[in-house]
């Protein structure tokens, strides 16, 4: 009897799914996701789209921070770049989404690579500080470049469309967001089975050893910034298509902290972790609202306190996870799976 998770061949080690049964379960789960709009209310469709978009952005950030070890506090600004690029390309230029979404991603990737250049000389704390500066600089540009961004008033974004096809409303947009999320997750998962992904991980674990082993550190760091920002840019594009109006206030520094919270709580350096973290952080305020609403009739002050309650629970979740489960929900998931695999003889 197998008494553990042993991999005997490279093929087993590289496999995305551990067993054919696991793959079938995943496929079945994905297929069932396609039927969500048939049952869910408008509110939950909005939440579902936001969760999926957050998954794309968190995966992007995890590629940079979790897998390559480069801390970035600038991802809210990169999200803004993707969203504004979408607003401009889809609005005044009137391009279809098939062009707009990749273009927004590529543009954000370029901006991200520009701000990734400091990683040539800086690491750790100093890189975090440099990306923080990037956030404020981009925010300033977005607020003041009025001819393109509409300044503080923001801009409105037309619905995603291609020819006669138009994704208006959350229920139809879901069918654009879901396949895109799945595709991007698969790409990320596969990225870390390739030379490029392994180079990222090598840089995270020990940059000097990586250099000695022949990894061009600067090139791969910049590439990591590019790939990560591409993901965040695509998330920004979808966010713009979903929200339909964007303004500088949509992308505060706290949003960047939210994304970092997602990968910390979900698990750094794990694709599954980005999914868990994005779901957790996006659902947290919604579930909190559901819990508070029935109490509000007895304690009317709860509704006024809700904003601070949300903030406090978010901070507390991050702090508690860091103190008690630093490897995040993905690690907990794996240990639960291992427990059941060996049940009742686990030790």
């Amino acid at each position: 009897m197998r008494c553990g998770d042993f991999r005997q061949t490279y093929v087993q080690d590289m496999a995305i799914f551990e067993s054919a049964f696991g793959r079938r379960v995943y496929l079945l789960f994905l297929a069932s996701l396609a039927f969500v709009p048939a049952f869910a209310s408008g509110f939950w469709m909005d939440v579902a789209n936001r969760v999926l978009i957050a998954i794309i952005a968190a995966t992007g950030l995890n590629i940079l921070t979790g897998f390559t070890g480069q801390i970035s506090l600038g991802n809210a600004a990169f999200l803004a770049v993707g969203a504004y690029a979408t607003g401009y390309l889809a609005g005044p230029m009137g391009l279809p989404f098939l062009v707009v979404i990749p273009a927004a991603g590529v543009l954000t990737a370029l901006v991200g690579m520009v701000f990734g250049v400091p990683s040539l000389r800086l690491k750790g704390l100093y890189l975090a500080v440099a990306t923080l500066a990037a956030h404020f600089v981009i925010e300033f540009v977005v607020t003041h470049w009025e001819s393109v961004t509409g300044g503080v008033n923001g801009m409105s974004v037309p619905a995603a469309s291609l020819g006669g096809l138009s994704f208006k409303g959350d229920r139809t947009l879901y069918y654009l967001v879901l396949p895109l999320t799945v595709a991007m997750l698969l790409f990320a998962k596969n990225l870390f089975r390739t030379k490029v992904g392994k180079a990222f991980v090598a840089i995270r674990d020990q940059d000097i050893s990586a250099e000695v082993m022949g990894v061009h550190v600067f090139k791969y760091k910049l590439l990591s910034f590019g790939v990560s920002s591409f993901y965040v840019g695509v998330a920004g594009a979808l966010l713009a298509y979903q929200a339909r109006t964007i303004s500088p206030e949509s992308f505060p520094i706290t949003l960047a902290i939210d994304f970092l919270g997602m990968i910390i709580i979900g698990g750094m350096g794990s694709i599954l972790g980005s999914i868990f973290g994005a779901i957790f952080i996006t659902l947290l305020p919604e579930l909190l609202r559901l819990a508070v609403t029935p109490l509000a009739s007895h304690f009317p002050e709860l509704t006024t306190l809700f904003a601070s309650l949300k903030m406090g629970v978010f901070g507390l979740a991050i702090v508690l996870f860091l103190v008690f489960e630093p490897d995040g929900m993905a690690a907990r998931w794996h240990s639960i799976k291992a427990y059941w695999k060996l049940y009742p003889f686990s030790y």
């Binding site: 921070t65 801390i71 750790g124 704390l125 975090a128 706290t254 902290i257 970092l260 919270g261 910390i264 750094m268 903030m311 406090g312 978010f314 901070g315 507390l316 979740a317 991050i318 702090v319 860091l322 103190v323 630093p326």
Partner: peptide
């Protein structure tokens, strides 16, 4: 470093 940064950010939020 990232964990410590996130801890102080979480603390700030609380």
């Amino acid at each position: 470093v990232i964990s410590v940064i996130m801890l102080t950010l979480g603390l700030a939020s609380v």
